[in-house]
Amino acid sequence: MQFKLIINGKTLKGEITIEAVDAAEAEKFFKQYANDNGIDGEWTYDDATKTFTVTE
């Protein structure tokens, strides 16, 4: 399945899409990606669109 991350950071904005087995695997990848890029904010997930959003 495809999952999307929308980044609304103070210094980094954009979107990335990955293939993952389930939402838990996608969330783990996205949170590591955000951590690696210094993004720390509020997370939301929309199951209907398979979209995670992080907002700083």
Rank of each mutant, 00 (worst) to 15 (best):
E15N: 13
Q32M: 15
V54G: 00
F29M: 05
T51R: 11
D40L: 15
T17A: 11
M1N: 09
G9I: 10
A23S: 12
A23E: 09
E25N: 15
I7G: 02
G38W: 13
A24V: 09
L12Q: 12
E42A: 15
A26G: 11
Q2I: 10
V21T: 14
T49H: 07
T55S: 11
Q2A: 12
M1T: 08
V21P: 06
Y45G: 00
F3K: 00
T55V: 06
V21L: 13
T53D: 02
G38C: 04
G14K: 05
A23C: 07
A48C: 06
I18K: 13
T11K: 04
I39H: 14
T53Y: 10
I18W: 10
A23F: 14
Q2H: 13
K31P: 00
K13T: 09
F3Q: 00
F29L: 07
V21E: 05
I6T: 11
K4D: 08
G38S: 05
T51C: 03
K13Q: 04
K28V: 04
T44C: 03
E42K: 15
W43M: 12
Y33H: 10
D36N: 12
K50T: 13
F30P: 00
D22P: 02
V54I: 06
A24G: 10
A48D: 06
I16Q: 04
E25H: 10
T55I: 04
T44A: 15
K50I: 08
D47N: 15
L5Y: 01
A20R: 04
A24D: 14
F3D: 00
G41V: 01
F29T: 07
D36T: 05
N8R: 13
N37W: 10
K10D: 04
A26F: 00
K50F: 08
T49A: 12
E25P: 03
A34P: 00
T11H: 13
E19H: 11
Q32Y: 11
K31H: 08
T49Q: 07
T17C: 02
D46I: 06
K10F: 04
F3E: 00
W43K: 00
T44D: 06
A20F: 07
T53N: 08
K13Y: 09
G38L: 14
M1H: 11
G38E: 11
T49I: 10
N8V: 06
I18F: 12
T49D: 12
V54P: 00
I16S: 10
D36I: 11
T55F: 14
K10P: 03
T49E: 14
Y45T: 02
A26Y: 00
I6P: 00
G41W: 08
D40A: 12
K10H: 04
I7S: 03
A48Y: 05
G14H: 14
G9P: 05
A24Y: 13
D22T: 04
K13S: 11
I16E: 03
A48G: 12
D47G: 07
I6Q: 10
T11S: 10
N35S: 09
I18S: 05
K31G: 03
T44F: 05
E42W: 15
A24L: 09
E56T: 14
I7K: 01
L12P: 03
K4V: 10
F30T: 01
L12K: 14
D40H: 15
D46G: 05
K31F: 07
N8T: 08
V54S: 01
E25G: 15
T53V: 09
K31D: 02
K50A: 06
I6G: 03
F29C: 02
E19P: 05
K28I: 07
F29R: 10
E19M: 14
D22M: 06
Q32H: 15
A26S: 05
E56W: 11
K10T: 06
D47M: 11
L5N: 01
T11G: 14
G38M: 12
K4E: 04
L12I: 11
A48Q: 14
L5G: 02
N37E: 07
K4C: 02
D46T: 15
E19V: 02
N35W: 10
T55W: 15
N8E: 15
G38D: 05
T55H: 11
F52W: 12
A26N: 00
A48N: 06
D22C: 03
A48R: 02
D22N: 07
T11M: 07
A23G: 15
Q32T: 07
L12F: 11
W43L: 08
F30I: 02
D40M: 13
G38F: 15
T17M: 12
K10L: 04
E27F: 14
F52I: 02
L12E: 07
E19D: 15
W43E: 00
V21Y: 11
I7W: 10
E27C: 06
L5P: 00
T17R: 08
T51Y: 13
E15S: 12
K50V: 08
V21R: 06
G9V: 11
E42H: 09
K10E: 04
E42T: 12
K28D: 04
A23N: 15
W43A: 01
T53A: 11
M1S: 05
T11Y: 12
M1Y: 07
E19G: 02
E15I: 11
V21D: 09
A34F: 03
L12R: 09
T51P: 00
W43S: 01
T55E: 07
Q2L: 13
K4Y: 15
E25F: 04
K28G: 07
Q32N: 11
M1D: 12
D36V: 14
N37K: 14
D40Y: 14
G41Y: 03
G9R: 07
E15M: 06
L12C: 05
A34E: 01
A24Q: 05
Y33S: 04
A34D: 00
T51I: 08
Y33T: 07
G41D: 01
A24I: 12
F52K: 00
E42Q: 07
V21S: 12
Y33V: 06
K13E: 05
N35I: 09
N35F: 13
D36Y: 12
I16P: 01
A48E: 10
V54T: 06
L12M: 08
Y45P: 00
A20I: 12
I6F: 10
G14S: 09
E19W: 03
N8H: 13
D46C: 03
A20Q: 06
N37C: 02
V21W: 07
D40P: 13
V54N: 01
I6S: 07
W43R: 01
T17W: 07
T49P: 02
E42L: 07
A24H: 04
A48P: 09
D36S: 13
E27Y: 14
N8Y: 12
F29G: 06
E56P: 12
Q32C: 02
D47R: 04
K10W: 03
N35T: 07
V54L: 03
A20D: 09
K10C: 03
D22R: 03
G38P: 01
L5H: 00
I18N: 07
G14T: 08
Y45V: 04
D46E: 08
D46Y: 10
A26E: 00
L12H: 11
F3R: 00
D40G: 08
G9D: 06
E25K: 05
Q32A: 15
K28F: 06
I6M: 14
A24C: 03
A23H: 15
G14A: 10
T51W: 05
A48T: 10
F52G: 00
G38I: 13
Y45M: 04
T44W: 08
N35K: 12
E42S: 10
T11W: 05
Y33L: 02
Q32W: 14
K28P: 03
E27R: 10
I18D: 02
E56I: 11
K10I: 08
K31R: 05
E42G: 12
T44Q: 14
K28A: 12
G14R: 12
K4W: 10
Y33N: 03
G14N: 07
T17E: 14
I16G: 02
E19F: 15
M1I: 09
D22K: 04
G41N: 01
L12D: 09
V54M: 13
T17D: 09
D46W: 08
T11Q: 06
F3P: 00
D36H: 14
E25I: 10
V54A: 08
I39N: 02
I6D: 03
D22A: 03
K31Y: 11
